[in-house]
Design a protein around this nucleic acid. Structure first.
Lengths: 255, 255
DNA sequence: GCGGTAAATTGATCCGGATCATATATTCTT
DNA sequence: AAGAATATATGATCCGGATCAATTTACCGC
């Protein structure tokens, strides 16, 4: 660490909105469901009808919500908190596929009888999720084509993100991938502060490594360099972007 | 090359069904559309109505059908031949995202006015594609929820493939990725022959490299080794799998 | 405040695979 | 059939990043 570093390093500036059990109260469920991007086309009455089919569940940070490979009966919607989707590999080297925020969904969409969850879903913070049997959700989609179209749009968008990631892994350096990932997270979870644009979720070097297909050590080295160059501020489990254009340049430039 | 190699190396055994301009005749379009996985739910009358909105287009191998980044007005369905989807990178290092067979679709599904194609689509063999304006296709989806659900299922499946690829690139070696890719291609395009299971499309070391995020040289080395080990037979632009279980073992094993 | 614990940093070494450089096959031309 | 053009093979070298190994730092509970 150079002495010209003014970054405030003590106490995580991340403030997660914790989700007390009461948060997902019946009172608020209609509002949550009504604000779902893919229920935008439904009338309040229809939302209320859909609400009947959802159960609400709470999970503490670190708990697993659905296990990859297990029989899959539900589709889940994140109501509050953050959920991470991940794959396990043989050598215990996990791959973090996605970090979901309220309004996003995960779980099984397939009508197949013997469907299994394609990935593991874990509570990244304390979360509240709404669960609906896959068949009931498909019935909703079949009844309301506008909802089906909206879900299709979200899925298409996620497919494009995944393909973007394939491209990054195929052609870009670790530094480029980390820079791009930080920018993406900031766009999704960023909060303007005096430190800069703070990513509002606990984010360890390990998480970052799993998101970019590298090791915690390499992630740490890159983060140290980015910090030394004044592009980010970071501490234990938190990151803030202090120079967005500069970081964007790192993400794009050949080296 | 060792002298114990009995692989037949001359003349490509690949026989592409070429697509004469007349193939996509009006007579056959209804049959093609009727067999589309996502039109399975439609009645013949409805298929005929949908047919009105499609135009047919032919492209020679190597021609570009849609350019990444350009304004996107159409959704395309592959009627005959193979279409490859690819991304360009700064350094001209292309990434082959997907290889589409008849019945699969590509192009723009988004309702946004200013939508652009997310990837480049190129004719890998001579192809015939059916094009429909995005708005017209969305109208179809809105009208027939069963079609929308089927398209959603296809998209979900593709998303899972993309995520599987992210996992491979993050955690597996070049040999593992190439072995897995060959098996996937064989499942999609394989044809049982005396040589083994022949992949029925021209497949260069370059293509393979672009599919697995490596270089033609590395792909060549891996292919030489796999051939020496008797798992595949291969020549200029063609590959056949002679020992599927053996190859599967290479795809899975830690090394 | 004082340890205890988990996260992060940093150094040293090693290796898979990229890159550079040719040589060799195979197909296409005429 | 000879030659051009393209695909493939293979050797030599180099480097980014993984791996192994200590430390150091930040946070938490008491």
């Amino acid at each position: 660490m150079t002495e010209n570093d003014p970054a405030p390093r003590r106490h995580s500036p991340v403030e997660i909105d914790t989700v007390p059990a009461a948060y997902c109260s019946v009172d608020l469920r209609l509002e949550i469901l009504g604000n779902l991007p893919f229920f935008a086309a439904l009338s309040p009455d229809q939302v209320a009808a859909a609400n009947e089919r959802f159960r609400e569940l709470g999970f503490a940070a670190g708990e697993t919500i659905a296990f990859s490979g297990e029989p899959a009966a539900n589709l889940y919607v994140v109501a509050a908190g953050h959920v991470k989707l991940l794959h396990h590999t043989l050598a215990g080297k996990d791959i973090l596929l996605d970090l979901l925020t309220p309004g996003e969904f995960f779980g099984n969409l397939s009508a197949q009888e013997d469907a299994t969850y394609a990935e593991t879903a874990m509570a990244h913070s304390d979360v509240c999720v709404l669960a609906i049997p896959t068949a009931a959700f498909r019935a909703l989609l079949a009844k309301h084509a506008a909802v089906a179209l909206a879900v299709l749009d979200l899925t298409t968008h996620r497919l494009q993100s995944a393909q973007e990631r394939v491209r990054q892994l195929s052609a870009y350096s670790v530094e480029q991938r980390i820079a791009a990932t930080l920018l993406r997270l900031a766009a999704k979870l960023g909060d303007e502060r005096d430190v800069g644009c703070l990513i509002q979720t606990p984010l360890s070097r390990d998480d970052l490594a799993q998101m970019t297909g590298t090791t915690p050590e390499s992630a740490s080295r890159v983060m140290s360099q980015l910090q030394k160059d004044g592009l980010i501020a970071s501490g234990r489990q938190w990151v803030a972007i202090t120079d967005r254009p500069g970081l964007a340049a790192r993400a794009d430039e050949p080296a």
